[in-house]
């Protein structure tokens, strides 16, 4: 047994021109969340509790694209999604289309523990009211920040420059004269793209792995769009071997079943954690851009990404700690 380990992320695909002040804010938030996780692990909380706790904290801070601060749909509303998985027993819960529940990750946990199902969406998710209570509700306005209202405007303008139904990553060469910033994620110029899905993976002192991911999704998304974050095996996965949370171009992550893949190459190919992460980022993303964080039951921690930057932080029991954005 290698002791506990934790990693957090705040999204992959960062605008290289992101103001330094914003970079600093992100690092402060990641460090704070990491410290919350570390002290929970030191007080022997199980991995599943720790990932929920850390993601709740990220959701309540408006900086990243989850909970408060979520990206807006084309209608200007917030539709959040989240999932959580306990590697110990492979139990999981997921939610999509959440509009008034303050902490989507905690609602995902309730789906896992208090419903006969694994995944609830839209009104069904909103109406999940366990008799024990514990679901804090807020107005949809709570999640909407002024900054994101402006971003939605920019995204709409960028979209009108392009075309309504784009096939991702095709057509940009031809449009690059029009688009000021050729860097793009998910079909949007990177300055508009809201990458900052959040996630946390933890292995506790007893070798139990867990993972959780939460997001507002894509800026200017169609209402009803589901991305990779709530999908078990795509954005989130945990089993006896490891815990994984992904972020980036959702459609590429879904096609690549990215989170499950890290576990699958460890189980079926015998790769180590870092090897598995590197293999998956290199071989399973095709053209897509994404990043992921992972922990193994042996207390290792790893991350990988194939785009410019990923907000991330990690720490292990033996005192290693790192918070970073760029390579």
């Amino acid at each position: 047994m290698g002791g506990w380990a934790i990693a957090v992320h705040g999204g992959a695909g960062v605008d290289p021109n992101l103001p330094l002040e914003r970079q600093e804010q992100a690092k402060v938030l990641l460090t704070r969340c990491l410290n919350i996780g570390i002290s929970a692990l030191r007080s022997s909380l199980p991995a599943i509790d720790v990932v929920e706790l850390v993601v709740r904290e990220l959701e309540s801070d408006p900086l990243f694209n989850s909970g408060r601060g979520s990206a807006l749909t084309e209608k200007g509303t917030v539709e959040m999604e989240a999932s959580i998985m306990d590697g110990h027993g492979r139990r999981c819960g997921a939610v999509s289309g959440v509009t008034t529940v303050k902490s989507p990750v905690s609602l995902a946990r309730l789906v896992m523990e208090k419903s006969p199902h694994s995944y609830l969406a839209f009104s069904g998710a909103e109406e999940l009211r366990p008799p024990t209570g514990g679901v804090e509700m807020v107005d949809n306005e709570y999640f909407i920040t002024e900054e994101n209202v402006g971003m939605l405007q920019l995204a709409k303008e960028a979209n009108t420059i392009l075309f309504d139904y784009r096939i991702p990553t095709v057509g940009f060469d031809k449009c690059s004269a029009v688009v000021e910033n050729p860097l793009q994620m998910n079909g949007l110029p990177i300055s508009v793209y809201a990458p900052e899905t959040v996630g946390c993976v933890v292995v506790d002192g007893e070798g139990r792995c867990a993972a959780a991911t939460s997001t507002g999704g894509l800026m200017n998304k169609m209402s009803g769009r589901i991305g990779d974050s709530p999908l078990i095996g795509a954005g989130t996965y945990a089993c006896e071997v490891c815990g994984v949370s992904c972020t980036g171009e959702g459609e590429a992550i879904i096609r690549g079943t990215l989170a499950r893949e890290v576990a699958a190459v460890m189980e079926y190919k015998g790769l180590g954690l870092q090897e598995a992460v590197d293999y998956v980022v290199k071989e399973r993303l095709d053209q897509g851009k994404a990043g992921l964080i992972a922990v193994s039951r042996n207390g290792e921690v790893a991350y990988g990404f194939n785009c410019i930057g990923m907000f991330r932080g990690c720490a292990t029991q033996d005192g290693f700690m790192e918070v970073g954005i760029w390579e």
């Binding site: 139904y165 169609m222 589901i226 879904i254």
Partner: peptide, 30 residues
Amino acid sequence: SGLTTVVNPISLSRLVMEKTPHIYLAFDGA
């Protein structure tokens, strides 16, 4: 997911694949 009036859900899933930048649409949006 969450279709209530579409006669052939499978054909709508193919349209999501071919005509949208997304993979998965659900409920009212779908």
